[in-house]
Design a protein around this nucleic acid. Structure first.
Lengths: 394, 394
DNA sequence: ATACATACC
DNA sequence: TACTGGTATGTAT
DNA sequence: ATACATACC
DNA sequence: TACTGGTATGTAT
């Protein structure tokens, strides 16, 4: 028949003549392949080759099915990782926000007698958090309560009220969502945000949209939700008219101001403080949020030099992902800071797995993820986005 | 005792207080650690932590022993791979030399009757090489002889004379060693050379050191090894004085001329021809050596654009390491040329392993190894380095 | 770690 | 009649 | 693939 | 008395 040549093309690429070689240009492939197949057909070799050919075809089928399932998202992500290989991305403003001593702070808020005492949340077996008073005794998260009691006999241990923390967390997340609807929560008390878009919009916002009333009550003010009025450009329309029971704070349009505002709103809403880090990537933002804890923030400007200056003397242990074991192993190599990490890359690349030393390399260059993607869509959040409390509403 | 604190430092980093946390600055670590250890000692938890601590210490010990064994060479190599990640290295002149139809050529040289006939070396079960005449029938290496006979009934099959090929290979390698004592043989008939150093020296060589007598006899001329005389700069001292039975070839100082000279010397010595590729890395050099086969050479200039131009329409199958299976898989994705390979990197990075797509990426960028390292030191080569046959000796 | 597949000469 | 055999490296589990 | 180790909250 | 438990990811074989 006539179809033989074609079906052979597809089916017997293994057996057909490979004319990819000097001196073999322009041969009559069909004729030659006919002779080759005729001579081979039915032999053990032939049967084996056919089997292998089928294996390869299956593998290709698998690949094509895999390809068909790829979402645009995935391809996009791959594109990004390729871009990351190319160079540093400084264009995103990433924020890491971390509630201060979260569980302990909630309990202190709701039971003022605890405020002056060293206290911790958890049990005699395990503590989840301690307040700052208790920390002066060496009492901290992940310490068993009975040991903490030895360090600080007056320590008050409050049992966990998970439902309460969850409810407060919801309130905090509503604030997060106002700055980045795609924010990535890492636990009840911390999250990453990409506020790049927010900042762009914010540039055109009138002061009224950046003005918040300070209420001294511990409960959030957002009781009556009036119309979000008066978007006039003239600052005269809404100058600092002190409200009923508080003064007015006006926040600027810079990243730092936006984050101050976010922390202000969290505190107004929950009476709890948060700390934050602002940086061009997640790894740096996380380190920054710890820098001025509690109730503080720190930012790294989006410039290579600023990043490198920040990284230079940073202890490796400060970086998320470097725990006590890795810290100890690096210490054995006289590596304590990120700069030292960078200086020793050659040796590290020989002593650690590729994954590990690539991670080290990224750290030493101050690189990290610049895109935040929420893994799982959390339930019913960011739907009723928090209302700002503009001056006009006062 | 006093030493406890220190031995604890080393031994119980897992249990000791981690004061790497806000609000825990300047605590009395020693006192706190004493209490922690006192409370823990002997418990099941404690015993387990000690065990893990020992594991970590062993791991560190292993790493340090590994580190101690690292040679400077290895660290050097690691340095290079880091550099490769940084950018393209165009400073080396890499050559791939490949003898033309080696075994067949040797047999034809030693048995002139074969010259006009289609012939191959091997057996009825398997052929190692065929001459160019036979290739016109589709007869090629890795084809069983009995099939080849069907394609070309007049085919002469000569059995393998391995010892002879080895001896000739030695002669060829002596020539290689004159251009790169560290050349890397890949088989009896091919090798990679880094002629960068040779070219630097060559710049200062007088013409006499680049002049070779052409002898028409089939046996190499190097019978009497006279003193390598006359290194004068004046070209007048040794102008083209035709030798006894041949004319004189003077080779220039460029990479192309050096390689032409090398091929000339191989032919003079063995009566066999070689083809060569010249490029800034091994991957490209290998492809180039195939381009003008037989008895030709091809070079890619050490410029990014030249590399990219060369790569653009190159079929992926031409690249060493891409075999029929990979070719077929890529073809299923409509990828045939290196440029297409580059265009599809995002999808490829999702469908293939990291090793594979990194390889593809390298290929698509025209990157390859720029340093040649001989894996195993071959026996007694490059010791009696070949004498050039300078004009002065004629 | 293991078995197996790919690739090269 | 008859489709190598050694080596390196990658893939899959 | 599996078991286990590291890291985080 | 008492040293979490869930998840993700990396390492070793």
């Amino acid at each position: 028949m006539d179809g033989t040549a074609d079906s052979r093309e597809g089916m017997l690429s293994r057996m057909a003549l490979n004319d990819n070689k000097a001196g073999m240009e322009g041969l009559d492939r069909d004729k030659i392949n006919n002779i080759i197949l005729e001579a081979s057909k039915g032999s053990r070799f032939y049967v084996n080759e056919v089997k292998k050919e089928q294996q390869v075809n299956e593998r290709i089928g698998k690949m094509m099915r895999h390809k068909a399932k790829l979402t645009e998202q995935q391809i996009q992500k791959a594109q990004l990782s390729a871009e990351l290989e190319m160079g540093r991305e400084l264009g995103r403003v990433i924020v890491h926000v971390d509630m201060d001593a979260f569980y302990a702070a909630v309990e202190m808020r709701d039971c003022p007698e605890l405020k002056d005492k060293p206290m911790a949340v958890g049990s005699m077996s395990m503590l989840s958090t301690s307040n700052y008073h208790a920390r002066r005794y060496g009492v901290r998260a992940a310490m068993p309560g009975f040991i903490a009691k030895k360090l600080c006999p007056n320590l008050v241990i409050v049992p966990l009220n998970f439902d309460k923390y969850t409810a407060v967390s919801e309130q905090v997340r509503e604030v997060f969502a106002a700055y980045d609807p795609h924010f990535l929560p890492m636990s009840l008390d911390e999250a990453y945000l990409d506020i790049t878009e927010h900042l762009h919009e914010r540039q055109h916002w009138p002061e009224s949209m950046r003005s918040y009333k300070s209420c001294d009550n511990e409960v959030p003010v957002e009781t009556d939700n009036l119309s979000p009025v008066l978007f006039e450009d003239s600052p005269s329309s809404s100058p600092s008219l002190p409200g009923s029971d508080g003064k007015v704070e006006v926040f600027g349009t810079s990243p730092e101001e936006a984050v101050r505002e976010m922390r202000f709103r969290i505190e107004q809403k929950t009476s709890l403080t948060a700390s934050a880090g602002i940086a061009p990537n997640m790894m740096l933002a996380k380190v920054c949020s710890d820098k001025n804890k509690p109730n503080g923030q720190y930012s790294i400007l989006p410039e290579r030099q600023a990043v490198m200056d920040f990284i230079r003397d940073l202890p490796v242990r400060k970086v998320s992902g470097i725990g006590k074991v890795t810290e100890k192993m690096l210490a054995a190599l006289d590596i304590f800071t990120c700069a030292q990490l960078g200086q020793q890359m050659r040796v590290l690349s020989l002593l650690f797995s590729e994954t590990s030393w690539h991670h080290f390399l990224q750290i030493s260059l101050g690189l990290g993820s610049t895109r935040i993607e929420r893994c799982v869509t959390l339930p019913a959040l960011s739907i009723r986005v928090t209302e700002p409390l503009p001056l006009s509403e006062m």
